[in-house]
Design a binder for these strands. Structure first.
Lengths: 229, 229
DNA sequence: TCAAAAGTGTTGAGCGTACACCCATGC
DNA sequence: GCATGGGTGTACGCTCAACACTTTTGA
């Protein structure tokens, strides 16, 4: 069975840049291609948009199928519509980026036959198609957005220490921050809930745990306070 | 002649939100539809992406064909991929927004048979499809972006007064600004070139004209100075 | 000479930044 | 008791915001 149209149509795909945070590194999930073109090369998880699903649903489905990830933070990045992106035929792709807690999704890499793996942002393999451009844009977007929207928390466990949070910003923004100033600022925003718990299993004084309070964040936004690191 | 594929494919279109600045208003260009669905309703200029052109080229071509606009500032906004956006069939649209100088494109509205017209942002008609959502998102994007990127100049004549520039920000951001503070700030950024010219044909003291210096802006960015209103 | 808009400085408050030491805990 | 990171305050400079009067020009 085939589907016919009066004019030629591009194929429509989605591709996802999935970021996670290691102890000391920003990581991206990549899938090793097992078919031509670019067989053996690494690529972003993604695939064709089906006719009965929205573009966002397609991104979530592909993420689930290829990496086992569900219910993650997902935001549209950009649509890449150059003519020769794909050597086979015209393919337009809607790119997305996702933020996940590595702890939740440790080694759940390969759900189907293909190999999936986390790569450090400064240890990337050569990528298939124009996926290097997509990844670069996603990284820039993350660096910009993390500074004025509280999306970084998506990369941390629900309960985290202020030092973990500071490291997150240092890793993503690629610069060091002053401990005292960072704490003053983030606590002054009134969006962190101080818990009655501390770290465990550390070989030194245990740090206090905090939780991001989304509700309080929304109230703050309404009051015109704006989140900015 | 028809084109056949193994799986059904969505149609791919582009839609453009074209902003311009009147003396006292932010305007959007709309086209009156002359065919079903939504016949007679106003809609964003746009149309199908051809197989041999990039998505951006399609946006520029449609803009040219439907409104006569060429060489304008154009940036991708978002891709709308809901299933029932178009009652006829599955259509995914890549939305763009454009900024133009109204002076350059005064009444050049209707190039083809359809009526085209500028509408004030607070005097919009009902729109076809989900174009109200697209327009709303474009407006938000403009409001955000104009504050930290020097894109406002795309809406003014090449030579402008500081008062014109201030009004631009007041109209887009929908709040008043302090004259002295505004001038201090914008001049302090070192991206405006003071000309040896003044306004003409005004019934009061003529204001000095300035020009945006893109080169100097890029130098400033390199030095880490960031544009922000 | 009048109307209209151009042009121009100062002050106070709040914010960002730089900076160093003691404390608690596990081994 | 020692190593490791946790936790804390102050002082200075800069930027932002508030605010009003004189000057220029054309009619």
């Amino acid at each position: 069975m085939t589907f016919s149209y009066e004019f030629p149509r591009a194929a429509l795909t989605v591709d996802c840049v999935v970021f996670a945070l290691d102890e000391s590194d920003l990581k991206v999930m990549l899938i090793q291609r097992d078919i031509s073109p670019f067989e053996g090369k690494w690529a972003l998880p993604g695939g064709f948009v089906r006719i009965e699903e929205t573009v966002e649903d397609a991104a979530r489905r592909e993420l689930q199928e290829e990496t086992g990830l569900e219910k993650v933070f997902l935001e549209q990045l950009y649509t890449f519509g150059d003519i020769d992106r794909d050597p086979r035929e015209r393919v337009v792709t809607v790119a997305w980026y996702a933020l996940v807690r590595l702890s939740d999704h440790r080694v759940k890499a390969a759900t189907d036959a293909r190999a999936a793996a986390w790569f450090g942002m400064d240890d990337l393999p050569q990528l298939a198609f124009d996926h290097d451009r997509i990844l670069e844009l996603a990284y820039q977007r993350l660096q910009n957005k993390v500074r004025y929207q509280p999306i970084g928390f998506e990369l941390l466990p629900q309960k985290f220490t202020l030092t973990q949070l500071q490291h997150l910003y240092e890793i993503i923004l690629d610069r060091t921050l002053d401990k005292r100033n960072f704490r003053k600022k983030i606590l002054g925003m009134n969006v962190l809930q101080e818990l009655d718990e501390v770290e465990t299993d550390v070989a030194h004084r245990a740090a206090r745990l905090y939780r991001f309070n989304k509700q309080r964040y929304r109230e703050m936004v309404k009051q015109g306070v704006n989140f900015e690191i």
